[in-house]
Amino acid sequence: MKAVVFDLDNTLFDHTGSATTALRRWVAELGVPPSDELVAEWFVIEDRVYPRWLSGELTHQGQRRARLHEFLPLIGHPVPSAEDAQDEFFERYLRLYRASWTAYPDARRALEVARGNGWRIGVLTNGSTTQQNAKLAATGLAELVDVVCTSESLGVSKPDPLAYQRVCEALGCEPSDVLMIGDNLDLDVLAARAAGLAARHLDRAAGTVLTDLLRVQRARLLHLGPC
Score class of each variant (00 low, 15 high):
residue 159 P to M: 08
residue 161 P to A: 13
residue 166 R to P: 00
residue 155 G to V: 12
residue 180 M to N: 07
residue 148 V to C: 07
residue 150 T to H: 03
residue 164 Y to F: 14
residue 154 L to P: 00
residue 151 S to F: 07
residue 165 Q to N: 11
residue 163 A to Y: 01
residue 156 V to M: 09
residue 169 E to G: 05
residue 162 L to I: 11
residue 164 Y to D: 06
residue 143 E to R: 10
residue 148 V to D: 03
residue 159 P to K: 13
residue 148 V to Y: 03
residue 149 C to Y: 04
residue 159 P to D: 11
residue 173 C to D: 03
residue 169 E to D: 09
residue 179 L to T: 03
residue 154 L to W: 01
residue 167 V to I: 15
residue 154 L to R: 04
residue 151 S to R: 12
residue 146 D to M: 05
residue 153 S to A: 13
residue 152 E to S: 07
residue 175 P to Q: 01
residue 163 A to E: 01
residue 165 Q to L: 14
residue 159 P to I: 10
residue 176 S to M: 14
residue 153 S to K: 07
residue 150 T to N: 06
residue 167 V to Y: 05
residue 145 V to F: 09
residue 177 D to M: 06
residue 175 P to D: 00
residue 164 Y to I: 08
residue 147 V to D: 10
residue 165 Q to G: 12
residue 159 P to L: 13
residue 177 D to I: 03
residue 175 P to Y: 00
residue 170 A to Y: 02
residue 160 D to N: 15
residue 178 V to P: 01
residue 184 N to A: 15
residue 150 T to G: 02
residue 179 L to W: 03
residue 153 S to D: 09
residue 148 V to K: 08
residue 157 S to A: 15
residue 159 P to R: 14
residue 179 L to E: 04
residue 169 E to L: 07
residue 164 Y to H: 05
residue 155 G to R: 08
residue 148 V to E: 07
residue 153 S to F: 04
residue 163 A to V: 01
residue 168 C to I: 13
residue 145 V to G: 08
residue 148 V to H: 05
residue 159 P to W: 07
residue 147 V to K: 13
residue 162 L to D: 05
residue 182 G to W: 06
residue 176 S to I: 14
residue 166 R to C: 03
residue 180 M to K: 07
residue 156 V to I: 12
residue 154 L to Q: 02
residue 168 C to F: 03
residue 183 D to H: 14
residue 180 M to R: 11
residue 147 V to S: 05
residue 145 V to K: 13
residue 163 A to N: 01
residue 171 L to A: 00
residue 176 S to W: 13
residue 176 S to V: 15
residue 149 C to F: 04
residue 173 C to T: 02
residue 163 A to M: 02
residue 159 P to A: 09
residue 169 E to I: 09
residue 174 E to T: 07
residue 171 L to M: 02
residue 155 G to M: 09
residue 149 C to Q: 10
residue 148 V to A: 07
residue 176 S to H: 15
residue 161 P to N: 12
residue 147 V to E: 11
residue 143 E to P: 03
residue 144 L to A: 11
residue 152 E to R: 10
residue 154 L to S: 02
residue 165 Q to P: 04
residue 155 G to H: 06
residue 150 T to F: 01
residue 144 L to R: 10
residue 182 G to A: 11
residue 161 P to E: 08
residue 146 D to S: 04
residue 175 P to T: 00
residue 183 D to C: 13
residue 178 V to D: 00
residue 150 T to V: 06
residue 170 A to M: 09
residue 162 L to S: 11
residue 159 P to F: 06
residue 143 E to H: 05
residue 144 L to S: 07
residue 148 V to F: 05
residue 157 S to E: 09
residue 179 L to Q: 07
residue 166 R to L: 13
residue 161 P to L: 10
residue 157 S to Q: 12
residue 181 I to L: 14
residue 149 C to L: 12
residue 152 E to G: 06
residue 171 L to Q: 02
residue 165 Q to M: 10
residue 174 E to N: 07
residue 172 G to M: 04
residue 147 V to I: 15
residue 177 D to A: 08
residue 164 Y to M: 06
residue 147 V to H: 06
